Structures are given as C-alpha cells and as structure tokens.
Amino acid sequence: MILDAHGHVGTWPDFLIPRPAAEHLVATMDRIGVTAMGISHLLAVGPDAVRGNALALEIAERFPGRFGVWQVYNPHHRTPLDPAGHRGRVWGVKLHPDVHQCRLDDPLYEPVWRLGLPVLAHGQTDSPWSDPAQFATVAARHPHVRLLMGHTGLWPYGFGRAARLVSDHPNVFLETCGSKMTGRWLARLAELAGPERVLFGSDACFLDLRTGYGRVALAPLSDSSRALIQGGNLARLLGLPPTGTAVSADPDGSLAKGPLE
C-alpha cells in the first residue's frame, strides 16, 4: 500500500501547474501504484477555504477511495470544518501558516487543536510563521494532536534540525515532500527520527508525483523502513487497517472508518 500524505488539486496564481485536475492525478497514481492521496484544494489554501474545501470533498466523492481530504482552516476567517467528513472522506485539517501569515503556535489555531484530528501543516525553516521550532511548541502544548510537519522544514539545511527539534515529541511526523528532498535525505531522516516517524508526500499537483515517489522507491532504505514510510506510518496514524480505508473523525476525536476501494 502506497499512501501519499500531501497532495493538492487546482491552480495557483504564481506557480505553473500544467495538469491541476484530479483526473490527471488519478491516472498517475494508477501508473505508479499509489493507493490514495491526501489532498487540499488550492482555492482553499488561497482566497476561499469554504468553497475550496467543498470542491475537495466533491472530488473525493467522485473518486471513492482514492483521495482523503485535508480540510483547510483559515484562522482569520475561522473556517467552519466538517469533522464527520462526508462519509469518511476527511483525513484531517490542513494549515498553511505562511500563506495565511499566522504563526503555527498562535492561539487563533486553538479550535483546530480541540478537534483532535490529524493536522498537516506547512513547515518552513527560518519562516516567522512555520519554523520547525513552532511544531515542537505546539506538540508540547497538545500532545494528543497528531501533527504532520509538511516538507520537514522545506530547505535541506534545516532537515536535520527539524528532526532534532521534534525528537522528543512522538506526536510529530516528518512529511518529506519538496523539490529539495533526496533519497539520501529520506534515509538520513529515518536514522535521525526513526522510520516510524517519516511519511511520504509528493506535493502533487504542484510537483510531479512520479519524481516524489521515485525518491522513496530508490532511497537507500531497508524494505521494512520503506514500507513504513510509503504508507504504513500514515495508515497507522489515520487508524487504517493494512488493506486501507478512508477515515474521518467524529467531533469527539474518535475515528470513523469506511472502506477504501
């Protein structure tokens, strides 16, 4: 089972995305063998979280079992979220502190932490909004929250530091998508944090899914570590059985499961 923790659909105003539609993602997923991908709609990351979240859920309905939705929360708009998740299509919450210019450790995100859902947040070394040190702060305040550090700090000079900053916080996972990531760095992160703390993500459709998965497929990892990173860890984090299910969480934080086809 291959689970992609970090994907998108839609367009972005200052970044060329040649194939932004879900149909193209599914075709590439089928070619590679990716079971499912967690997506947020770029409209939601940008100007309209409510409409973008609705579009992402519609896509998950059209392609049952292929997409889980990370619902974007804009802290300035206090975006309403649907934790029940449209028949189990929601994987959790997506935060982008840099786009929204709101620090990850800002109290404005408290409604998200109270949900108890998994949270995928953009992480960028030396950013005033999302430096990995802020992930450590949030993890210490909210040890019950399963927090995915998107991009593991983004820049290669910060990968190792990101792993060290969250080493004492087992609720933080290192998600590794980004154009600067390499197979060797994936293996190094598995050494630093343990392979059970590292997650495969591609950042498709921003970046090429084939390249993103190629790093995992060809990284100098043991077969057991590769299996954890390419899907086993995310399945465990979401509460999926080995065969895969779509997952949402009830408002009280308990998981509700449905079959992934």
Rank of each mutant, 00 (worst) to 15 (best):
G244A: 04
H76L: 10
Y73Q: 00
H24V: 12
L147W: 05
T137C: 07
M37H: 02
P18Y: 12
D168Y: 03
G7P: 08
R87F: 06
L221Y: 10
T11F: 11
H169F: 11
C102S: 09
T243S: 14
L234Y: 13
P128I: 05
L104N: 04
R19W: 08
F135T: 01
H151A: 15
A204F: 13
V99D: 06
S179G: 10
S225N: 11
E175M: 12
C177L: 06
D131K: 15
S130F: 07
T79K: 03
V72C: 09
L255K: 11
G178C: 13
V198F: 08
V172E: 15
V45H: 06
P13W: 13
L42A: 12
W129I: 11
R89Q: 13
L55E: 15
A219T: 04
S224G: 03
G244P: 03
S130V: 08
K257T: 07
G33R: 09
L237K: 11
K180P: 02
N233S: 06
G153N: 07
S225D: 15
V198K: 03
E58H: 10
R236E: 14
G201D: 12
R188S: 11
G201W: 11
R114P: 00
H6N: 13
F135W: 00
R114G: 02
D250M: 12
G231S: 06
L55R: 13
L57E: 14
C102H: 00
G10N: 08
L189T: 03
I17C: 05
Q134E: 02
P80S: 03
A56W: 07
W155F: 08
P251R: 14
A139Q: 06
D203G: 00
